[in-house]
Design a protein around this nucleic acid. Structure first.
Length: 701
DNA sequence: GAGTTTGAAACT
DNA sequence: CAGTTTCAAACTC
């Protein structure tokens, strides 16, 4: 009787309604995917940028977790439900794969996804040869993955196996998936998207990631989601990133990669890097076992809690040389990577720090604190340094002409060469004769000037005391407003030498980093991904303008936005204006490799959009006028100075500046105040709050 | 890859 | 400000 009533009731709308309310949902349709959150992960509590995490979908750890959940914790009813769910999901995924295959030849995105599926399958089969194999690679892969979730459908993953997969292939998978995700995002192929399902998955994944990144649950399991990632990765991305174009997406993706690293308390920390190196590093260079990873996490936690001093952390990092030292300019595109060991990347020794950008995972630094997680530390340190030298973060190399870069170029057939710039302080070379990169002038591809104290100068870009190239070439050279003695110190370069040097300078690979906005790579070590040029020298701005920055016309009135969207076409700051410079940099910087913006120090930024000739920014005492601007000084003296984290940064377009009209010259500097969210405003993918407020790593810093 | 050299940064 | 030390990059082998 009761059974009958139950059966009757079961068909009633009320039952259906109750069913829908039940946490144990009957496995049906797309909504079933939401069962994943039940498996383990707590709801994302802090992360607000779920779009960062889709990559985690592929974390091999997921297998482990999901399986454990199904096998060990699910009750009979749930198990049944899980089984059903798995079957349904399997069916859906199979359909999805079939659908994707249908578009294989039409859509790169689908192709990428399929490729990914195949790779995942390969990985899975490699480690789990007995997995379900039906009628297709992709399908097989998906099935096996799904079976991992639904333990009863497939044979369980044993821990060692999971560990093996996770450890050796984690990085590769992530990267792969990431790339797929990227493509998918860019293409936004509707055929492979299922927002409702994937959103849930992404949330689950994110929560798992959160746990992981907090360090306390490195082994936290995540719902597999594998097989679903094909869609979820795409859908997990906020639309705003889908519409931003490839560049932006790349940045976002890069950031995602940054944050996806496991196991990490602070994804970008050096210690974390050790653990979260790419798959290759994992396989070949990273000696960390899971326990070691945990240990690293513990180290970081202890350090954060103050129970471990920086020296210990450092020692640990040193004892675990995860990465081989990379050349500072390791990639052909001029990207730099620091290798700091003792300074924690919080001194000017560190190129990244000096450039006003955070270190990337690509860096080989040890005990690095130049990470978004240590925003406060970074900013404090910056302030300290700037208190000693307000121009410490100002560009070292300043062009000595106020003409626009284009007009500064010397016609040389098809090529143009920039007029000479100079090192602001000059070098002090004794033995290198300014012919090696020990010499900052030489390194910056600029000639030595009278300001240099070098001995036996043979700088091929201009020997100290030699006649000015500008003069010899009849070029309009010096701006009267250009500060100090530079006018007197015009680069003296013999015509031939100068020309060859400048030609050399114009070669992309020789360009000094100066366009921070150009993200060359990411923490993901993927060279293909843009990462900011830690450009320190303002030498050949034009050549380094990110392509996407060269198109949008700008108006001075919306300079900030302009900066965000497009880099001034070949324009650069003749003389640095810290605020100006940094702001530009900040705006240009893709999120991946974050730049610590002094502007973010105080929650607002000062965009120093100088209407005056850039050269006006530097007074006779070599101090940018901005630093002398009392109005700014009162509140932001140091901050303004610090707001030029990248000395190598270039300024807003001069042409635009000229368009502003002469009224702004000299004293007509415009300060565009723009509210900018505190520090990682540029990196929506990073929750700075999570990682800020760390004590300074070392009092001695 | 390890060790050395170099000069800037930091310190005194 | 000058001298010294420290540091990391550049360089050499």
């Amino acid at each position: 009787m009761l059974l009958f009533l139950f059966c009757v009731f079961q068909d009633s709308p009320i039952f259906n309604y109750i069913n829908n309310l039940s946490p144990i949902k009957p496995v049906k349709g797309p909504s079933e995917i939401q069962v994943f959150p039940v498996l383990n992960s707590p709801p994302p509590s802090k992360r607000s940028h779920t779009h960062q995490q889709p990559i985690h979908l592929k974390s091999p750890d997921c297998h482990n977790i999901s399986f454990q959940e199904d096998n060990n914790t699910a009750g009979p009813s749930l198990e049944k439900s899980s089984l059903k769910s798995s079957e349904n999901i399997l069916t859906k995924m199979t359909d999805a794969v079939n659908q994707m295959e249908t578009f294989d030849n039409e859509d790169d995105n689908v192709l990428a996804s399929s490729t990914h599926v195949e790779k995942v399958q390969e990985e899975h089969e490699l480690s789990h040869p007995k997995s379900v194999d039906n009628d297709g690679k992709s399908r097989s892969c998906l099935q096996s993955n799904i079976c991992v979730n639904g333990a009863s459908v497939d044979q369980p993953y044993d821990q060692p196996l999971v560990a093996q997969v996770g450890k050796s292939q984690l990085g590769k998978r992530r990267r792969l998936q990431f790339e797929v995700a990227q493509d998918s995002i860019v293409e936004s192929d509707p055929h492979v998207q299922n927002s409702s399902n994937t959103a849930a998955i992404s949330e689950v994944v994110e929560s798992s990631v959160l746990q992981t990144t907090r360090g306390s649950t490195v082994n936290v399991s995540k719902p597999s989601g594998i097989g679903l990632h094909l869609n979820s990765i795409v859908n997990a991305m906020p639309l705003r990133y889908l519409s931003g174009g490839r560049k932006k997406l790349t940045s976002v993706s890069s950031q995602t990669q940054d944050n996806m690293q496991l196991p990490s308390i602070s994804p970008n920390s050096n210690l974390v890097e050790n653990v979260s190196a790419t798959s290759e590093e994992y396989a070949h260079h990273t000696p960390y076992s899971n326990s070691e990873s945990m240990k690293i996490v513990e180290y970081r936690e202890q350090f954060d809690q103050g129970s471990l001093n920086s020296a210990q952390v450092e020692a640990y990092g040193r004892s675990n040389p995860k990465k081989k030292r990379k050349k500072t300019e390791s990639s052909g595109d001029g990207c730099k990577f620091c290798n700091c060991k003792k300074t924690k990347c919080l001194k000017l020794y560190c190129d990244c720090f000096a450039a006003g950008i955070y270190c990337a995972d690509s860096c080989s630094c040890q005990g690095c604190f130049n990470k978004p997680e240590y925003e406060n530390t970074v900013l404090e340190t910056r302030q300290q340094i700037e208190s000693r030298d307000p121009l410490a973060f100002a560009p070292k190399i300043v062009p000595h002409s106020t003409k626009s870069p284009r007009s500064q170029m010397l016609d040389d057939g098809d090529q143009v060469t920039p007029l000479a710039a100079r090192h602001k302080r000059g070098c002090n070379c004794k033995k290198s004769m300014c012919m090696k990169k020990y010499c900052e002038c030489y390194q910056a591809n600029v000639g030595c000037s009278e300001g240099c104290r070098c001995e036996g100068c043979q700088n091929t870009f201009g020997i100290k005391g030699a006649p000015s190239m500008a003069k010899e070439t009849g070029m309009e050279s010096v701006n009267e407003n250009v500060s100090d003695s530079f006018d007197e110190k015009n680069l003296k370069v013999g015509p031939n030498r100068a020309r060859s040097s400048l030609l050399e300078l114009h070669k992309p690979h020789n360009l000094s980093p100066q366009t921070p906005s150009f993200q060359c790579s990411t923490h993901g070590n993927d060279a293909s991904e843009a990462r900011v040029y830690p450009g320190r020298y303002v030498t050949s701005p034009e050549s380094e303008c990110p392509p996407y920055m060269t198109t949008t016309p700008k108006s001075p009135n919306n300079s900030v936005k302009m900066d965000q969207e497009s880099y001034p076409d070949g324009e650069f700051m003749d003389e640095f204006s810290p605020g100006d410079w940094s702001t530009s940099r900040a705006q240009y910087l893709p999120p991946t490799r974050m730049r610590f913006s002094p502007l973010g120090f105080h929650g607002s930024s000062v965009t120093l959009f100088s209407g005056a000739k850039p050269s006006c920014n530097i007074s006779d005492d070599d101090t940018p006028t901005i630093l002398k601007d009392s109005a700014i000084q009162q509140h932001n003296k140091v901050k303004v100075a610090s707001s030029s984290p990248n000395k190598k940064r270039v300024s807003p377009p001069r042409i635009r500046l000229h368009e502003l009209g002469s009224s702004t010259l000299k004293s007509g500097r415009k300060f565009i105040l723009k509210a900018v969210s505190s520090f990682p405003p540029l990196t929506p993918c990073i929750d700075s709050k999570q990682t800020s407020n760390h004590p300074p790593p070392d009092d001695t810093l």
